[in-house]
Amino acid sequence: MGVDFDMTFFLVRRMAGFAATLFIAALVIFLLLDLLPGDPARFILGINATPEAVAALRTQMGLDAPAHERFLAWVGGMLVGDFGLSTTQRLPVAELIAERMAVTLPLSLIAMVVSVVVGLPIGILAAMRRGKATDTALMVLAQTGVAIPNFWFGMLLTLVFAVTLRWLPTGGFIPWDEDAGAAMRGMILPGLALALPQASILARVMRTALVDVTEQDFIRTARAKGMTKSEAIWRHGVRNALLPVLTILGLQFAYLIAGTIIVENVFYLPGLGRLIFTAISERDLVLVRGATIVLVVVTTATMLVVDLAYAFVDPRLKGREA
């Protein structure tokens, strides 16, 4: 029973931490946005608007209430799933965020899948050929992959595959329900652009992890039993190297959800990053804080899952969090 108690205690503590993180994050977001210079109403109406028109719009947007009331109203609303109305578009923020998630989530997943499918085999191959020319070549490739700024790489991809070969669109997004095939085609190049550095990192992590594992005793034992180095790596090494790889994957997913903004810009995709970017320049603060908190929830939840996974895989870590 002791183990179960430990686990329950660990879970409760971890969940409390999760909730505390989110609450503080919400407070930080709200305060930061409240400090922003620039009047949302003035932005909408532009330079020729009369002061009365601006004042009328401010009232309409609910900007006149005191800060603490607005904060409580916001947090209270979110608890029941109400993120408020966007001030510029007059639409529910939750709906606007969901629309963008339909781009950002699949895009992040595609990038993850590509980076795993490309990165892991490269890492394994390099580890098997450790010290040989193949290893060096692959690692040079991986180094370069990390080093190329992804907006630059995205543009090169577009020039080759969209402008010259015309195999794929230069960007844009067709909604899934309109034409799922076209939507998918539009995700390939941005997915590749996002995957390049991630795949390179994965390859390096996988190689390092494998090389470490091969130096450990059980691999030596396996080899003593007559396995070749490659067989030993396959049978025992890869599985043992997966833990660090899983950690990296968790981090990468959290990063991808928010980090796609640059690639979204290159491929004019309506993702979450660009939503926040435009909303803040239009001073649509209700939308900005809603979208930001969603990002924070996703990132924090991903980290939580990684930690929990760790705890289950390696129960020793429960006492002190990973």
């Binding site: 503080i24 946005l33 930001t292 990132t299």
Partner: peptide, 19 residues
Amino acid sequence: SDITFAFPAVIVAILIAAL
């Protein structure tokens, strides 16, 4: 560390730039 990590760098940059 969780809270800081929870704010993606790009979002932090956008907020600071606006401020």
